[in-house]
Design a binder for these strands. Structure first.
Lengths: 187, 187
DNA sequence: GTCTATAGTTAGATAGAC
DNA sequence: GTCTATCTAACTATAGAC
């Protein structure tokens, strides 16, 4: 796999490095070409264009993230699950501020540009998974009877906003927000 | 003023209309030129470039918003002020989803691109004004003794996140989030 | 202050040989 | 699958007349 996908992966690695450093919009294919060592032809052999590279990176990141969270023991309780998700978000965002910023940029683009549709679909899929989970907690009477859209906004909104402005969140603030997230939706 | 700034304003009007419809990144100066009726020369007489147009629009919007909020009677209590701000954000965002999206796009750009520095400064200024206000409430014992960064994330984070995903928020959800915002920071 | 005309640059993308 | 060479299009920005 490594030998076959060498070029493919080297393009993605170079693109990610550049996107993290200077953002997606300010990165040109020419830069990706020179940094990766690949040629224009190779790049267009593997990818339809610049947006397609961003989508591939998003998919890889999501895949890696999914693999990680699958290894963590399934917490059946709503409280543990919600706290763990906010905790994870704040830890991850604090550890990877550039990646968080890139995700913000791509998220905004995904809302309006057709080329980023796969990212939008991924986000909707994750949203629906959370929705199903929240529905079960609601049946159990563990959480407030509100829509998942509102609930998830209460749960991750503060963490997301804080990361967006501060980029790095202290342990103390993280613990505080984790508890507040649960307080906001528990019944 | 209207006669002097006719061209200036017509350029901004055309730019705003285009930015709202197709986003900042997907709008070219050529489009602004043809829509406004102005010529390239005029545009570059008034503005340094495309980012400068966005900055001017941001300033005009902030100026209008400041004028409006100044007319509202000063609510001395922390509860009224915080509830009013969340209420206003959700009302405004729901009424102007395209404008909210544009602000999101510009906000992200402001964090990394030098040309948008004035927007970044404006945001920091607003943040500091809130900080001062929160400090007085803290002295009065009305709100939790937490940093303004965390407090503001708790207050507007959910509203912001919900607007970002849903674009339009129902009256019921709005009232709910307004109350939750106050609950999150009250002592 | 506003215009026309165009320079100068860079972008994304393609064609065809190997 | 990878390469070189090249294309077209689009952009921002400037120069100079009125």
């Amino acid at each position: 796999m490594a030998s076959e996908n060498n070029r493919y992966q080297s393009i993605l690695d170079a693109a990610l490095e550049l996107f993290l450093k200077q953002g997606y919009a300010n990165t040109s294919i020419a830069q990706i070409r020179s940094k990766s060592g690949a040629t224009t032809g190779s790049i267009y052999h593997f990818f339809k264009g610049k947006p397609d590279i961003a989508v591939a990176l998003w998919d890889q990141a999501v895949a890696g993230w999914t693999r990680e969270t699958r290894n963590t023991p399934q917490s059946p309780s709503a409280e543990d699950t919600i706290k763990a998700s906010v905790n994870g978000l704040l830890r991850w965002g604090s550890a990877n501020p550039d990646l968080f910023r890139l995700f913000e940029e791509l998220k905004v683009k995904a809302q309006s540009e057709e080329d980023f549709a796969p990212i939008k679909q991924q986000m909707e899929k994750v949203h629906m998974q959370g929705e199903a989970l929240y529905a079960t907690w609601q049946v159990l009477g563990a959480v407030k009877p509100i829509s998942w859209s509102v609930a998830s906004a209460l749960i991750v909104g503060p963490a997301y906003t804080l990361l967006s402005t501060e980029r790095v969140v202290s342990d103390k603030d993280r613990e505080f927000l984790v508890n507040m997230a649960w307080e906001a939706v528990k019944k």
